[in-house]
Design a protein around this nucleic acid. Structure first.
Lengths: 371, 371
DNA sequence: TATGCTACTGAATCGACAC
DNA sequence: TGTGTCGATTCAGTAGCAT
């Protein structure tokens, strides 16, 4: 597999590979601050009576219940703190992490994340549309899992493709509860005996939403509990780089085979809807400089209750107020802020036209002739 | 109010009263092992910074009350451990507890519950049908809260009214995610100034489901953070005894007034929640996430005059147009609007098939297992 | 009385960048 | 590191008043 070098520090990164070994050791061997996003589906084999294992796979001694429970919690917490710390070291300053779990472990994991300095952005509920029923009728059907989305620290400028997610949700902003089916059918990988290759294979739809929403093409995504490689498969399809860590040979084999068959979507299909924030800034003064508006022209507020006059330096003057289009609009409305671009209109052929139209013209020209 | 004596230890219990004071001190003054169920809605420790305005410039009325302020995680943890310990002492051997929270606090609370010896039975997600949006477009809409349901210890024979819940859910097993609206309208209590009496009043529908599912008539329900008394009101309606603890006089007053008006349901009046659901909304993006269509796939218009390509975010790109299936269809036809579901087809085995067929598949899956 | 329009609201950790 | 300025951003629903 190829190794790209267009990402900072990426030359040292084993991109698009599955690394064999203990995830903490492997992570500690990778360069600091080199990863954009981590997706982690850590094991949680506690509370399974008769099959209680430590994360290092040694059996937990059967002692009295209370001590046993406390002991295994402590072991699990130590394991959790260990991999979370190693993961955080790898993240770029503006990197982020997703962790998925169920009620058996997610509360401990979430608390550990907060204690380690991660800044929780949302918890997201994966609502399974076809969960396993509760056969004994003693509890609620366990129909969801919880994901925690957190940035490396409070100040991180994390990636969030708001418009793309809104598009995925047909024009309504994406909520913190996602209804998606579990992984079944052809997508569910089988081993050579025809049994399911991994007990908790995640659906690609889940990773699609995670990666479209919180990464950009070319970003490096690390999955320290790679399993059968759902994270890698979706990353490859979406034009992201991945690094997987998995210590079970059987899973690595299945994942390698799976990944070899995956093809990247074509470039045009990977383009997603972007927000206005991503567009170049146009100072209002440019409309005056270019003669699209002339000093002395009158602008009218959206609600037609106020007017103001354009000045040569690209500021406005209204009744007792002068300043930028935003400042004058805010002052006249008595509002804490105001987007002057959508607030002010000018007259053309007797029609009121938002000044934002002129900005769009300039932006269109810029797109035709970049720089 | 009357004091019943049919419950063990109940003669010492201040039933159907609101107790004034610190919840830990009050709980420690009540007899050990006397409570059937605890419902707790502790402070969330929101840690809000500046003001937040809606896009229309109106200010969001934030939860900035003194009781939600904690100086650090450590202080919050100490508080949490304190009340959880006092609560557990009060529970009967087969008693249980519900705690509600958001991502700000629920992970710490859940871990503390496990450490204190509670045995988690389920986490239940309250999916809000009408949450407040994310106004800045920087995160997912915070559309749910999490409840943890736990028994006093692993061996507890907790109460679970499986059939009653199944009836509440139109004959299907109750799942771990509940769709309920937030508390608004006339149910939302106002103070004498006409402002909301409590910033975080919970809907009665939520408590209804909790109490029907995990208590029996005559059981004693304790709420250590009583607020305006939703737990008490629903308990009274359902013929359960309640004890409330609340240290804010303003909340106690509102709750007393509220409770004085509440009448117990007569035995036959099962209020039926006939939820005549509209057909669930299926965003086109979900067909892409779920792999029913792939980014790069081509769609063809019904009249075969146009085609467009599917993108990773569930938008289409045609000749010089991009946007939702509806927008692109309308643009290509020069029409003011267009139903993309019936306008676009994909090819399967050389045949043109309307994409609406795929939507119907998803709806059929959802109909099999409602809610 | 029915219908339509406007105003308002809800547990929210809700900028980025230049100087 | 702080300050000032630009300017992007909302969904489902209820209440109340006007027609």
């Amino acid at each position: 597999m190829t190794v790209k070098t267009n990402t900072k520090g990426a030359s040292k990164l084993p991109l698009n590979q599955i690394l064999d070994g203990d995830c903490i050791e492997i992570m500690n061997s990778l360069p600091e601050g080199s990863i954009d996003l981590i997706f982690a589906d850590p094991p949680y084999n506690l509370q399974l009576k008769g099959d209680l294992h430590r994360p290092d796979n040694s059996k937990v001694d059967a002692v009295d219940d209370e001590w046993d429970q406390f002991s295994s919690f402590a072991v699990y917490d130590k394991f959790t703190n260990g991999w979370l710390k190693a993961a955080r070291r790898l993240l770029k300053p503006h990197g982020a992490i997703w962790v998925i779990g169920s009620y058996h472990n997610i509360f401990r994991v979430g608390a550990a994340m907060q204690n380690a300095g991660y800044w929780i952005l949302n918890d997201v509920v994966w609502r399974k549309s076809n969960p396993m029923p509760n056969f004994r009728g003693k509890r609620f059907t366990n129909a969801h899992e919880t994901m925690i989305w957190a940035s490396k620290e409070e100040a991180s400028k994390y990636t969030f493709n708001y418009e793309a997610l809104k598009s995925l949700n047909e024009g309504v902003q994406m909520r913190s509860d996602w209804v998606l089916p579990i992984c079944t059918g052809h997508e569910r990988l089988k081993n050579e005996e025809g049994e399911k290759a991994h007990p908790t294979q995640k659906p690609e739809s889940l990773l699609h939403r995670v990666l479209v929403g919180s990464t950009n093409p070319g970003d490096v995504v690390l999955d320290p509990f790679f399993g059968t490689g759902t994270t890698g498969a979706v990353a490859k399809k979406l034009g992201r780089e991945f690094i997987g860590i998995e210590r079970e040979e059987a899973y690595r084999k299945v994942a390698e085979k799976r990944l070899s068959k995956v093809r990247k979507f074509d470039r045009e299909s990977l383009q997603v809807s972007t927000s206005k924030r991503a567009e170049p800034r146009v100072p209002f003064g440019q409309l005056v400089e270019r003669g699209m508006l002339t000093p002395g022209d009158e602008l009218y507020s959206m609600n037609n209750r106020h007017k103001a006059k354009v000045r040569a330096d690209g500021t406005l003057i209204g009744d007792d107020v002068k300043g930028s289009i935003h400042q004058v609009g805010a002052a006249l409305e008595g509002a804490p802020s105001c987007n002057g671009w959508t607030y002010w209109c000018f007259k053309r052929d007797g029609q009121r036209v938002p000044i934002d139209l002129l900005r769009q013209q300039i932006r269109a020209e810029m797109a035709d002739r970049p720089n």
